[in-house]
């Protein structure tokens, strides 16, 4: 069974038309399922846990990057998820603005997302973890004064103004296409950009690190603000996602 999780903001009248088109398309493709509206429930994790227990095969976030963050956290935190992990799939139907994560997975438009869901092209991707929060895309912070400590016994620091980006998955729309990011290698791709020129770039990979910074501005998946210090890690192959052909990784 497919479970469609609709974000709160889709209640606005301006989304009625696009939602109707999506629902018609899903019906045409025999992909109907149960609709859960986030605005109507308090504990997303409990609801998803029940659905997985009752045999849900695909959980679909209908909304934007924020919707994805909420649903991913609820799926992964689910105690049953580990047991059913091989069977439960995750997908996205992007609606409206701020859908860079769907774009990275090769899902560019709402109705196209229905066809991608039918095609069932599945990739097992890594999930980033910062403190107790999961992320799909990246953690970013100002570079000046930041220190990155690695378990192998070394640290990186810079006094120069710029940005540090710690990627799991590169956004196809918001992130520089020249950056190499692999969400299926069990490693975070870390970039420090301090100059205007991409040649003045630091790049390395690691499976975990600790961030300290005086600025206290950590932005997770472009939506969640956290304070430093923070521990960042990666959970390899944690999520089975349905992807499109035009995804940002192989």
């Amino acid at each position: 069974m497919n479970i469609y999780i609709y974000d709160d903001y889709l209640n606005k009248p301006k989304y009625n038309r696009i939602l109707s088109r999506v629902e018609i398309r899903l019906t045409d493709l025999s992909l109907n399922g149960k609709i859960i509206r986030l605005g109507a429930i308090r504990n997303v994790s409990d609801v998803i846990q029940n659905e997985i227990k009752n045999g849900a095969k695909t959980i679909v976030a209908v909304g934007n990057n924020q919707t994805v963050s909420k649903v991913i956290g609820a799926i992964i935190d689910n105690e049953l998820y580990g047991f059913f992990q091989k069977n439960v799939l995750f997908s996205i139907i992007p609606i409206g603005e701020d859908n860079s994560i769907a774009d990275s997975l090769g899902i560019k438009a709402s109705e196209e997302a229905c066809n991608i869901l039918l095609a069932r092209r599945v990739k097992k991707i890594d999930i980033g973890l910062i403190n107790n929060y999961y992320f799909l895309n990246k953690v970013s912070l100002p570079s000046a004064g930041a220190v990155l400590e690695f378990k192998d016994g070394f640290s990186l620091s810079t006094d120069q103004k710029g940005v540090i980006e710690i990627f799991n998955l590169r956004s196809a729309t918001n992130d520089d296409k020249r950056l190499k990011v692999n969400p299926i290698d069990g490693l975070l791709d870390i970039y420090i950009k301090t100059g205007k020129n991409i040649k003045d770039l630091t790049r390395l990979t690691a499976d975990s690190l600790k961030i300290s910074t005086a600025s206290n501005e950590l932005l997770v998946d472009g939506t969640l603000n956290l304070s430093a210090p923070a521990n960042i890690g990666i959970v390899r192959g944690k999520l089975n996602v349905v992807v499109g052909r035009d995804r940002s990784f192989d």
Binding site: D152, F154, S155, L156, S157, T194, D200, T202, R203
Partner: peptide
């Protein structure tokens, strides 16, 4: 051209850096 690790000119590394 496709080096796995690049330490840029503005960055300082301290410790045992093994790749």
């Amino acid at each position: 051209k496709d080096a796995e690790t690049i330490i840029g000119s503005s960055v300082t590394v301290k410790g045992d850096f093994h790749g």
